[in-house]
Nucleic acid binder design. Sequence first.
DNA 1: CAGTCGATTCACT
DNA 2: GTGAATCGACTGA
Length: 213
Amino acid sequence: MPLAREFFDRPVLEVAPELLGRTLVRTSPEGQIELRITEVEAYAGEADPGSHAYRGRTERNASMFGPPGHAYVYFIYGMWFSLNLVCGPEGTASGVLLRAGEVIKGVDLARERRPKARRDRELAQGPARLATALDVDRALNGTDVCAGPGAPLSVLEGTPVPARRVRRGPRTGVGGEGATHPWRFWTDGDPTVSPYRAHVPRDRSKGRQQAGA
DNA sequence: CAGTCGATTCACT
DNA sequence: GTGAATCGACTGA
């Protein structure tokens, strides 16, 4: 059974940690892949400087403003895709970025899509790697993930990670004001969790940048 | 309408 | 640890 829409229709900071351990199922003509979610980040709507929704609704982020329980897929760095799950009531534009997971079914197919992965734990270790392994692209933007196990994308109940095994810290790659919130959640000790990297502005001569403490 | 740079990954030193 | 790859949404004029 997929998670009910009500699961996603709650504050994103409640939903995000409870997504750890859930099973994401990707069904395509090539086959099916199941992924155990191990790392996520919360993006809290128009008030969140780190969110794509910060400057209001645009064509790109429109699905984040839509109903919960749907996918928000965006294209980044000219070559990658990332997958979010929309949370909260329609219009609040919150979402959870799926940053990493463990492929628990369809490993062979995932390896074909990610030939550069040296170990199985690297197959979906990072948001763009996860999207690549699952063949998630623009075509899945707006997809309902509560529809059913046969849908292109579906989130099943899985085995939720108990709260004592959930760790949290700053979001990866997010700069400015948005960097201060510890809105990244991961499963303690899981080898598929991606390494933390602080935000690095492309050109230092422009924006001001403070060296670490 | 041109310039900028990103919720990243990979190869190389 | 550092820098290149690659493109399109967003910004400001």
